[in-house]
Amino acid sequence: MTTDRIPKTDKELWQSLSTGPVASDAVPGTVSDMDFAAWLEGRLSETQSAHIEAAVAANPEMRLAAMELADILGMPLPAAPARMAVRAQALVGFEVERRVANRGWLAGLLDVFAMPRAVMAAATVIVAISGFMLGGGLGESYAQEKVASTTQVVSLTQTQQTNELTSFFTSDGI
């Protein structure tokens, strides 16, 4: 970095002057982060820049901030400690967690009462279904019913045929 020698007399002249009123009259208010960033990137119009430059000239902290930020933004950055990223990432949860966290107190209250009942209902349904499955299920019972009715019809037909033959032989037909 080059260091330019400024004539001492110029410096003395400047130091004998009070610059307060110039700057304070020109600063209408505070500078937003967005405006300051736009100024640092040189994206503002001349009028907008003049407003920020007046504010920066009036405020030593802003002058320091501008210098430091311009310096940092213009150089390669060293890597940050890994735990800095880990801690920051933990600030935002997954979608499901956020949805649960956003639920109101009423939903929470309902959960307190509804949860045990839902568990009981689920357990009952599981017991009923497993019992039914152990018993063969709906298909098995239907099949049994069907077989039973078919056997009944067959036996009924056979009985009828037997009766007819017997009556044929015992009748005068032969």
């Binding site: 080059t2 260091t3 400024i6 410096k11 820049s49 430059e53 000239a57």
Partner: peptide
């Protein structure tokens, strides 16, 4: 201190003089 009249220097001129003399930036 002598007062600089308003409008004598532009904001940029004031800023540059402050950086050069008040903060001794290069």
């Amino acid at each position: 201190k002598l007062k600089i009249p308003e409008g004598l220097l532009t904001e940029r001129q004031t800023l540059i003089l402050k950086y050069l003399y008040d903060e001794e930036r290069d």
